[in-house]
């Protein structure tokens, strides 16, 4: 259970408050206008953004004063999720242990993770030799190896085309369901939220609203969300 207890973040004249609880294995989308603080909220959970006040708890243990690596959290950013000068196998290996030397058993785990995301046998390649979709898959494979119970996605698939993005979302759905991973995803696209996340939170006007059902929220949007989504296309 991930709990954001009266969380408040102040950056200059920007403030964001959040107060909600997410059960283990639930999948939550953060939706809302640019600059509303979606990424800031993820950064706070991952440990890159100190809280002004409030607490973040995982299974009733406070997280918010722990360093990023000690949190039960893995995160994928919009880009720069792989080190360009390392091979895929080395990049993935960093998810197991922060070193570049790995035992034969660990090597097998790396190969298995690559296979799981459809990149079997590509461990010796470098990120530059891969397509955008393959890079996303490799980053997801590393998340698998990290075995953290919470996964944060900060629009890592935003640069992919619609079909490829849908593929990636389905892959995320499979992987997180298999491992009972709790997911929080930032997105601009309501259809992405609908595809992957049963729960949805509107982040707008300095406030992260409590999670509600994604379909209901998007079908009957409150005023702030309606302003962001615009009028729906005629059927």
């Amino acid at each position: 259970m991930l709990q954001l207890d009266q969380v408040r973040i102040t950056l200059g004249d920007f403030t964001l408050s959040a107060n909600f609880t997410l059960q283990s294995g639930e999948k939550l989308a953060l939706i809302g206008p640019s600059g509303a603080g979606k990424s800031t909220l993820l950064a706070a959970i991952a440990g890159f953004q100190p809280l002004t006040s409030g607490r973040i708890l995982w299974r009733d243990q406070p997280l918010h004063s722990q360093p990023p690596a000690a949190r039960p959290v893995s995160i994928l950013f919009q880009d720069n999720n792989l080190f360009g000068h390392l091979t895929l196998a080395q990049n993935l290996g960093l998810g197991l242990r922060p070193t570049l030397r790995h035992s034969a058993a660990e090597q097998q785990q790396i190969d298995a993770a690559l296979k799981r995301v459809g990149l079997a046998g590509m461990g010796a390649r470098r990120p530059a030799d891969l397509s955008g979709g393959q890079q996303s898959r490799a980053a997801l494979a590393r998340v698998l190896l990290q075995r953290r119970p919470v996964l944060l996605l900060d629009e890592p698939f935003a640069a992919l085309g619609p079909a490829l993005r849908a593929d990636m979302l389905d892959l995320v759905a499979e992987l997180t369901t298999e491992a009972a991973i709790t997911l929080i995803m930032v997105t601009h696209a309501p259809e992405d939220a609908r595809r992957l996340c049963p729960l949805c939170t509107l982040v707008a006007e300095g406030q992260a609203q409590p999670p509600v059902g994604t379909g209901a929220l998007i079908d009957t949007p409150p005023a702030a969300l309606r302003a962001y989504l615009g009028s729906p296309p005629a059927p």
Binding site: A46, G47, F48, P68, I75, D79, N80, N81, P98
Partner: peptide, 13 residues
């Protein structure tokens, strides 16, 4: 990119 250092921190380097 700042993400590199964040990634390193989140991987426990």
């Amino acid at each position: 990119p700042a993400e590199r250092f964040r990634l390193a921190a989140s991987l426990g380097m």
